[in-house]
Amino acid sequence: MNKTETVTDQELIERSKKDHRAFEGLYERYFEQIYRFVIKRVNEPTVSADIAQQVFFNALTRLSSYREMGHPYSSYLHRIAINLCNEYFRKSKNQRFVLMDDALAESLIQSMGCADAEHLQREAALIQALEQLKSKELMLVELRFFEGYSFKEIGYLSGITENSAKVKTYRILKKLKRMIDGHGK
């Protein structure tokens, strides 16, 4: 795979349109990334592998209609992944998982601007509040604060504009803060 390392995504896409085997370059480059993205939400290795495989299958079948729209190809793949995950949850009614460690929780709490309450209590309240969010709201928090996407990318991934992604995210932060403060009292 060494020879594809230096090739850009765009070149690989052009090449894959002519010869579908060339898609292997993109596959090797992004499979791990997509797999992790999916397993963080699904927490089930075999299902995640299936979904990730399906992402690339969908991408491959729609390759001819793919057009560069100012977003990297990896975002396009993530967007397919999000949609497939949502479809999976809708069909299976399985639990959604959100991966959050202490550092992420801390940074989220700081973004909300509450600093005084007891550390442990605060985090328990945060988890409880997060679990009450609607799935779309949770997705925005997840993408923004746990996975560090820019608002532009979040907008593209969830099919809304950059601006409304920003507005919605901050509205959710306020809501979370309200929920946590309410819990403390």
Binding site: E32, R36, N43, P45, Q95, F97, V98, L99, D102
Partner: peptide, 15 residues
């Protein structure tokens, strides 16, 4: 529960 916040996910790097 529809959502579960977890601190650790197994097989995360098994891609």
């Amino acid at each position: 529960k529809k959502v579960k916040i977890v601190r650790h996910i197994e097989h995360l790097h098994d891609g």
